[in-house]
Design a protein around this nucleic acid. Structure first.
Length: 323
DNA sequence: CGGCTTTGACCGGCGC
DNA sequence: GCGCCGGTCAAAGCCG
């Protein structure tokens, strides 16, 4: 990730230009009071009032600018750390690839078909879930032509050795379409498609590691072209409690899913249901996402909550020494 | 009744 | 061309 991609102007606590429902903004209240005051005492007092108001505004602006700057710096350092970490992981993987290639040459190990030859040496410090993105070249072996431009990533999940369920909970909704016992592994491999198929073509294979039955290996092919269901649920809920919108009723019969997602129907305010949004053209979906993002960033409550959450998370991470 | 899982059949790529 | 193998399909069954 490049820090330049990130628009750091979150507009946190920025004084709203649309006074619709921001009664809680102290500056605005003060200005309103002052406005009433100046109506009564016009004349010399108004100059003082204006000066005081502009002073308050300037102070507030300075404070916000400082806050924004701080957040920008934090974000920049976060991006830098991320980039460093990513390049370090890449280096490790390349080193490992080279050493395994040398081993292969030395032992003249001939494998007819081994596109999924697994290497768990990068599971250093694995706790619950460890992800590694692998490009097609790094993936090493031949892939079908149509999958050459697919992004392939792996997730290793620690599980009970006795647990025969091939389930990796990643928040997305998957539909199982096959299971197969492969030659090189006594444990069966489960095949999943994203439940938003055919609009989302992401596939997932889940199989226990042949070497370590305590580890589930989930191989993802492709990238989701929709929001993470949990994120989407949160956004939908946040949106639904805004004063301008009416709460849409939850569907009474929630379908069985690996991760529950509230389903909303189109109500009298013409709020779209997820199904309609999914069926909409990509450009319209993009527009909806932008609308949601802009309405959220304009909301001072959301902005301050986000700032608080971010600062809390940063302090948590710095305490844990993960940076 | 709709959606999900299971599982045997089928298909296509690859090596010989 | 044949056999092996991984991946996918689709009918049947299950479940809430």
């Amino acid at each position: 990730m490049d820090s330049e991609w990130v628009n750091t102007s979150l507009g946190l606590n920025v004084i709203p230009f649309h006074p619709a429902s921001y009664d809680q903004a102290p500056v605005k209240k003060q200005l309103e009071l002052e406005g009433d005051y100046t109506k009564v005492f016009e004349g010399h007092a108004s100059v003082k009032q204006e000066a005081a108001a502009s002073h308050v505004l300037t102070e507030e602006l300075n404070r916000i600018s400082l806050e924004n700057k701080k957040l920008t710096e934090m974000l920049a350092s976060l991006c830098e750390n991320y980039t460093n970490l990513q390049s370090h992981v890449k280096e490790l993987m390349i080193t490992k690839q080279q050493s395994s290639d040398q081993n292969d040459l030395a032992t003249n190990f001939n494998k007819k078909r081994k596109p999924d030859s697994e290497d768990y040496s990068n599971m250093i410090g694995l706790t619950s879930t460890e992800t590694s993105s692998i490009s097609d070249e790094e993936y090493g072996c031949k892939r079908p032509k149509e999958n050459m431009n697919l992004k392939i990533s792996r997730v290793y999940v620690r599980t009970e050795a006795s647990d025969t369920r091939l389930i990796v909970k990643d928040g997305y909704q998957w539909r199982k379409y096959g299971q197969k016992v492969t030659r090189d592994n006594p444990s069966p491999r489960a095949y999943y498609k994203c439940s938003f198929a055919p609009s989302c073509q992401v596939k997932k294979k889940v199989q226990k590691s042949a070497e370590n039955p305590c580890v589930l290996v989930a191989t993802y092919e492709g990238e989701h072209n929709h929001m993470h269901p949990e994120t989407r649920a949160e956004v939908t809920l946040i949106g639904s409690i805004s004063p301008n919108q009416q709460l849409s009723p939850l569907s009474p019969s929630m379908p069985k899913r690996t991760s529950p997602v509230p389903t909303f129907s189109c109500d009298k305010n013409n709020n779209l249901s997820p199904r309609e949004i999914e069926g909409a053209p990509p450009a319209f979906q993009q527009f909806l996402v932008q609308q949601m993002a802009s309405s959220l960033t304009k909301d001072p409550n959301f902005a301050s909550a986000l700032a608080a959450a971010m600062s809390g998370r940063f302090s948590d991470h710095s305490r844990m020494g993960n940076w």
